[in-house]
């Protein structure tokens, strides 16, 4: 009886004490812990983000600075070396061509006999660019003719079942060596003859490169009409090229010395010009006879 009564009192006491307990305990504890938990990952994320920024930006900036400095140094070196040997603007003069000039020049190379005025025209002591003066030499036609000759050689050898990619390199090297030898010989001759003229290295390169147009015509005619056609075309292109070379070189070489009568120097110039012109057919034949059956 006494025990039972005590248990009832205990239950009542517990119920009355439980009423005020839950709300403040729950609110306070969860609030505090929530703030701590919220604070823990956020600083971690910020730290990671800051670390990414710190690692990314300096490395990227350093790489960009290093790359740009290397590029600018390389560019400066290339420009310096180029300007030492070649003047880009001077080369651009020889490549300032248009379609009309190329067509007329090719016609002149094939049939030069009716052309009257062979003097290079000037504008305020500066020679006119090729697109405005038919007599001005250019490097576009020699370059294209040279590569066309190599291509045509490959095709001719292919038709004769003798083609391989090596022969292209061989033909290109042989032709290039011949051009360089001719230019050096002309420079040596001009130097020995003490001729003062406007002829520079690029001028001589252009005039010696025009022979490839004749080579192309000879080889094409040989492929189409056989050996007889080749020799006819060879004779025609050789005579046309000799005439063209004599008129062009003589006019260019005797520009500043046009005043006064004939002198031993002018005779020497004439012999040099004739020698250069006579040398053209030999080179044309040497570089093309093995391409025609």
């Amino acid at each position: 009886m006494a025990y039972h009564s005590g248990y009832g009192v205990h239950g009542s006491k517990h119920r009355t004490r439980a009423a005020p307990n839950p709300p403040p305990l729950f609110d306070d504890t969860s609030g505090g812990y929530s703030s701590q938990l919220g604070g823990y990952p956020a600083p971690g994320a910020d730290v990671a983000f800051n670390v990414n920024n710190l690692l990314g930006d300096p490395v990227a900036n350093m790489a960009m600075a290093y790359g740009s400095s290397i590029a600018s140094q390389g560019k400066d070196i290339v420009h310096k070396e180029l300007h030492r040997f070649v003047s880009i603007n001077k080369l651009k003069y020889f490549f300032a061509v248009d379609t009309a000039y190329v067509a007329k020049k090719l016609g002149l190379l094939v049939f030069p006999y009716t052309h009257q005025n062979w003097k290079v025209q000037y504008s305020h002591d500066v020679p006119l660019p090729p697109r405005k003066d038919l007599n001005a030499p250019d490097l576009y036609i020699p370059t294209m003719a040279f590569i066309t000759y190599v291509l045509l050689a490959g095709m001719a050898l292919g038709i004769q079942q003798r083609f391989s990619p090596e022969v292209l390199g061989l033909c290109a090297s042989t032709a290039l060596v011949w051009v360089l030898m001719e230019v050096l010989a002309l420079l040596l001759g001009l130097y020995l003859a003490t001729v003062r003229s406007e002829l520079g290295t690029f001028h001589l390169l252009a005039y010696s490169g025009y022979k490839y147009v004749g080579m192309i015509l000879s080889v094409l005619t040989g492929l189409l009409f056989g050996s007889d056609g080749y020799y006819v075309a060879l004779a025609w292109t050789s005579s046309a090229l000799m005439y063209f070379t004599v008129r062009s070189l003589r006019t260019a070489a005797s520009g500043p010395d046009s005043m006064g009568g004939p002198t031993p120097r002018q005779h020497l110039q004439l012999y040099l010009t004739l020698g250069a012109a006579a040398f053209q057919p030999l080179i044309i034949y040497w570089l093309t006879f093995h391409l025609v059956r």
Binding site: P22, L25, F26, T29, S30, Y33, S34, L37, G38, P41
Partner: peptide, 11 residues
């Protein structure tokens, strides 16, 4: 019990 509930719910 009250301590465990926020831990499980928040992270």
């Amino acid at each position: 019990g009250q301590i465990y509930q926020p831990t499980q719910a928040y992270p």
